[in-house]
Write a protein that binds this DNA or RNA. Structure first.
Lengths: 117, 117
DNA sequence: ATAATAGCTGGAGTATAGTCCATGTCAAGA
DNA sequence: TCTTGACATGGACTATACTCCAGCTATTAT
């Protein structure tokens, strides 16, 4: 199945401008129909979902792009992609620790403030 | 104790430019000595530590500034500050869930790629 | 006395990630 | 046929968070 940019916008909650921007920086390259309109495949949709997941965890587009470049080069880059994914896993594990540290700091502060009122 | 901007830079691993920028946007207002040089108090240092903790969890400076404004207004704003801190606690709890979702997505992808090589 | 060091200000410049706009094409319905 | 809607492009603009620079003052070391 193929989807036009307006459908992607509606179904994936992302603006047309953002989709075109991602294409401009080389994150995604949808096909085109005979009138040059973008056609996003199911694979493109899956890739977009992945991008949004990475973005939701604050991965910069530059990093995501590294992964995109490897995808474009085909199956010989699978090992490198695993490396990137494992790095990201490490970062996220670290990020959880940072959040936990902040949470316990917040607890302390909230408790302290509550004694003041 | 008071610290000059260069000491803060070294000890808190933050650039002088960033410290001046934070002052410009009203996040922190250190005292000045007779030559107009910034003097950061222990309270300022504690506040900077708090800022960095919030920043480490991706809170935008605008949000941090809301809290800064309440601090400036004194003890009548404690209840409001508790509200902000509790909101942030909620966000961070949510963020951990997002990270966990991304982590399990990464696991799946890594496992899948490993079957391919 | 001079030079290096540390600080000041105002303002310009940068990177990231979009967002908006003018203008134009194409297809389908009234 | 004409208008509406969906899409296209190129380029300007925006917000966030710094970062850098020119030009100045004050303190400290030699």
């Amino acid at each position: 199945m193929y989807y036009r940019i307006g459908e992607i916008e509606k179904n994936m909650n992302v603006s047309i401008d953002t989709l075109r921007y991602y294409e401009k920086i080389g994150l995604i390259c949808p096909e085109r129909d005979e009138h040059d309109r973008r056609l996003y495949s199911d694979a493109d949709v899956a890739w977009l979902e992945f991008i949004f997941r990475l973005k939701a965890t604050h991965m910069p587009l530059k990093e995501i792009k590294k992964y995109a470049e490897l995808r474009k080069q085909g199956d010989e880059t699978i090992a490198k992609r695993i490396d990137l994914l494992e790095e990201q896993r490490t970062r996220l594990t670290q990020e959880k620790k940072t959040i936990d540290a902040c949470l316990s700091y917040l607890e302390t502060k909230i408790t302290h403030y509550k004694t003041m009122i």
